[in-house]
Amino acid sequence: MADAKVVSTHEILVEGALPADATTIRLVRSSDADIPLAVVSVKPAAQPNSFMLTTAETLNKQDHYQLTAQGVDQPWEIAPSPLAMVVSVIIGSALINNFVFTRYLGLCVFFGVSRNKDTAIGMGITFTIVGLLSGMIAWALNTYALEPLKLGFMQIIAFIGIIACLVQATDLILKKVNPILHKKFGIYLVLITTNCIILAVPLLNATSGATFLQAFGLALGAGVGFALALFLMSCAVEKVNMAPVPMVFKGLPVAFIIAGLFALSFLGFSGLKVA
């Protein structure tokens, strides 16, 4: 199969023989294959044996497209490279849609453990690892067991069960294998079960019908984003603890105001795009 890729918002670079007549070419999004996207022109590109297609509609590099032409047997599949997709999902879930600051999840644990830097780092690392593990197991269970058996209504029960078991198992194994590490991170393991992010990741993946790589990216990005938020917050809280805060605002109220300011600054990431 010849190669084709989206090079800019209105252009596709196609390798291989393509008829010069734009009306014989059919370009569709793989997600809705019934709606053709209008092709404006076909021109030979600078590279040998390749053509530049110009479209009327705006194209997205993250989308999947299908290209067929009269007289050519093989269709062209246009898909983003897997690595670029994973990176964009990770950046999307860690920064642009940060789970704490724009989706407001995991707040109980967030405000609970962001009081000093050491606990914040410990919780961040533990959460990222356990979240990634449980996200992948839940994805596999949903894709290979719940979906084929039409047990979608069991999602909540199944996911919370997996998380509870995994946290218990990690706790036991860590205690046996590496007691020193367990002493350091064991306390955070218990807290993870009450963190809504760890449950939200498999639920979001199940709702969007994510592929393995997308599920992996979302789970990793959620963990990294949560760790980043915790670390930032703990740095700010350590400073505020020494400041003269009005009495009624002491403790949690001022922590909320700080989190609000962080959320405002995270709005700035909404313009971020992965090329």
Partner: peptide, 19 residues
Amino acid sequence: VLPAGGFFTIGLIMAMFNW
């Protein structure tokens, strides 16, 4: 109503409860 506003609102109401 922006994402950040939720944090400010809860912080303020919490302070009001304290007051």
